[in-house]
Design a protein around this nucleic acid. Structure first.
Lengths: 197, 197, 197, 197
DNA sequence: ACGTAAGCGAGACGGTACGTCTTGTCTTTTG
DNA sequence: CAAAAGACAAGACGTACCGTCTCGCTTACGT
């Protein structure tokens, strides 16, 4: 708010440049994956000076992240039809489709890159992970209130128990994630977190 | 047998060079993480020509992988004490300790790198993932025979259900993995995969 | 004028860098001959990035050429004393001293290199050969006007007839060029090109 | 002699290998000039081990030289028809054709390479330059005895005076050598070295 | 209205590491 | 014991990007 009120001096930053940078990044991601998103390529493609990119993002990973988080649709809100278990299944299958899409390739690449880049890890956490986790947490709360999941359940533990295996197959083992696998994992979690330990 | 019997011609490759390369890689991993494992640095540290490294590994990731897989202790075989559930807990906690160790840093870095490097992905799968999975699968089979896990359980589904959340926290969300978390995940899996679906 | 008026965009190239590169090249030429003029060595010695060198010269021969042509004194203008025959003798002896100097080693090396490098051949022609030939041609014209050389003489034929043997001994046969040899060659040329064919 | 008499033990040297090496060298010279004659390429093309080449020649230049000097026809002995001036003209024109041929490309490349390679320079001198000079010197001696060239003429000076300009144009200035140019140079030399200075 | 502060394009710069190429040597097995 | 095979140390090559820097030009706010 302060910044907005201060009426910043000097030439205001060009929203057009920002748009061209993100579009160019998206194209490069589509064509050659994260590997193709080099600062030089983005600048050339966007018709923008490298300095302009560096003014707003510290490195290529941050640019790719901004691009992905701007373009990534929020988790599908596909209506309250069915049980909460059913709604989790749909949510996980949507996530799986996302991970298999082009944006998904960028996401896994970013998850890969953040292993060796703390700043990117932080950015990923804030811009991608936290918002999505907040959203899925709401559904879990409803499920708990509805009695489908045990009352004392730690939300993160439950959510990690169902999202973990999906990401694990995608990122660690490389096996394909089938709908059947998702069904089994959700069932196991609902069973595991309903019965009192 | 075929390879041994073939009596290869020409100067045999130097096991000494291989050893020096892997040692140098290990040192660099320890000092600066995967980021520090550049071909130049490895060659310089090992007192070896770059070409010698390239003759045997296609890129730095492969070298680091070879280094890690050579040095990584196999999953601790800590004896059959306790229930299978208990043994799984111990196994997962050992894995967690491994991931938090220096080798673990290399492993997560490699998992990160393989997101954008199919050859590394394949190498990781063969040299790290498959052997470890084979080992854990044995324990699961015993648990199934002992009736602690339902008879029809797909081994990969069960194992992904317990290893997935650990790796997820380590690699995707960045949260720390506590022993309590491991206990919960194992309990949930045993509960989820004991009840018939 | 066009170039000056173009108002070049971007950061202007650094004359300092250019100077450091040429100085380093000169030093290396002096120390180890053309053989020592590697891009790496020049860059290291000049405290300049290799890319900066490659931005302006395509290869080490071109750098050495630029260095030599920048440093090479123009053909000594030693005054109009004596006959034209005498002045040619002095000019050839100065050329011989140049070829025997350190720059001369670079020149012969460049002539050697240009045998297998058309671009370098072109550069040599423009930066070294053409200006020197233009200068010697002037003296020949005077000699023709003075009647010391036959009126219809083709300048290039005469000049090749006197410079050819010098370079031939230096570059092809490797024999040393004495002042006596130069005197004989000049005399023979003046005799050969005065009598009408 | 001792060696020959000693009935040398072990596997005898393969003359076949030598032939294959020289053939491969000739092919490479034809295809890519001296630049393409690398030890690796020769070995690969000839189906011969690098060590075998190194056993007989010290470096690639020596191999190329051996190849050229083996293949280069001696100076055409085209009969005593015409004056000695005429015979020199024919000899120089033959030399010019040789320099413009494929072997000629190799020769100029070798002359280029020897500027920075003393060993090659020595080898060139012995294997190429000296034999040819000896041959041309014979013709000059006849010309002197016939009175076409002045009695006191230093053979090397005369021969450098006519060969120099040809090689100069070929190697230094890059201009084409026409028959007319050769005629003029020969005439000038005969005029220059007949009249007493 | 005009000065000045920031944004912007262009592109040169010092660097790092890449993966390749070739050299000349060394160490085996084969003939 | 020579030849063939091929691994080895060394080191330069030319390229790709990095992140920084200096330019001249543009845009909008402040006085």
């Amino acid at each position: 708010m302060a910044a907005a009120g201060a009426a910043r001096r000097g030439r205001p930053r060009s929203p057009e440049a920002r748009g061209k940078i993100l579009s160019a990044t998206a194209e490069l991601l589509a064509e050659g994956g994260f590997h193709a998103v080099t600062m030089e390529a983005v600048a050339a493609r966007a018709g923008v000076a490298k300095t302009t990119i560096y003014r707003w993002w510290p490195n290529r990973a941050a640019v790719a992240l901004a691009c992905v988080s701007a373009r990534m649709a929020p988790i599908a809100e596909d209506g309250p039809a069915g049980s909460h278990r059913e709604r989790f299944r749909r949510q996980l299958k949507a996530t799986n489709r996302l991970l298999n899409s082009l944006e998904g390739q960028a996401i896994t690449a970013l998850i890969g890159a953040k292993q060796t880049d703390p700043m990117l890890a932080e950015a990923y956490s804030e811009q991608i992970a936290r918002p999505r986790r907040a959203q899925t947490r709401l559904l879990l709360m409803q499920a708990i209130r509805a009695g489908e999941v045990a009352a004392g359940t730690d939300p993160d533990e439950f959510l990690d128990a169902i999202y973990g295996p999906i990401y694990y197959r995608k990122i660690v083992s490389g096996e394909t994630v089938t709908d059947a696998f998702i069904d089994r994992i959700v069932d196991a979690a609902f069973a595991g977190f309903s019965a009192a330990p």
